[in-house]
Simulated scan of single mutants.
Amino acid sequence: MIVRQLQECEQSDRSVKSKTWQSVRMLLADDNMGFSFHITTIFADTETHMHYKNHLESVYCISGKGEIKDLATGQTHQITPGTLYVLDKHDKHILYAFEELSLACVFNPPVTGREVHDADGAYPASS
C-alpha cells in the first residue's frame, strides 16, 4: 500500500515548477502502478502551450476557472470545478488560466518525476 500526503510531496523533489505551473507528482513511474498522479496548479493569468506526444493525460478541475483550446480544431472549452478533460489523441492545446487552477492529473505512461515541457510542449518519452 502507498500512502502519501500532498503537503509532504509539496516539500520534496516531487514538486516541479515552471513559469506557468507547479506540479506535485504524488505517484510516479517507480511506484509501478502504470500511471502517474499529479496535483497541478496553473498560475492565474497564464497560458501554457502543451502537446503530450508521448503521453495520454486525464485532467479533473478541482478549483479555478480557465479554458482549453484544441489547436487542431480551434474549439475551446470552459474549465471550471467539476470539469474533466482527456487528451486521448495526444491533442496539441493551450490551457488558459483566468484564475488559479487546481487540477488532478493522471498520465499514461507514468512520468518519472522531474519532467518539464520541451520546446513542443511535451514531456520526453518514458524510457
Rank of each mutant, 00 (worst) to 15 (best):
V3M: 12
R4G: 03
Q5N: 05
D13K: 06
S15Y: 04
K17C: 04
S18Q: 15
S18D: 15
T20D: 03
W21F: 14
Q22Y: 04
V24F: 03
R25L: 09
M26D: 04
A29W: 11
D30K: 15
D31A: 04
M33Y: 14
F35L: 15
S36L: 09
H38L: 15
I39W: 11
A44H: 02
D45R: 03
T46P: 06
T46Q: 01
E47I: 03
E47C: 10
T48S: 02
H49Q: 09
H49L: 06
M50W: 05
K53Y: 05
E57N: 06
S58E: 08
V59A: 14
V59Y: 01
Y60T: 03
Y60A: 01
G66A: 13
I68G: 01
I68R: 07
T76N: 03
T76D: 05
I79H: 05
G82P: 13
L84N: 14
K89V: 10
Y96C: 07
A97C: 08
E100N: 00
L103K: 06
C105N: 06
C105I: 12
C105P: 10
V106M: 12
N108S: 10
N108Q: 04
P109I: 06
P109W: 07
P109T: 03
R114D: 15
E115W: 02
E115D: 07
V116G: 06
Y123G: 02
Y123H: 00
P124H: 09
S126D: 05
S127L: 13
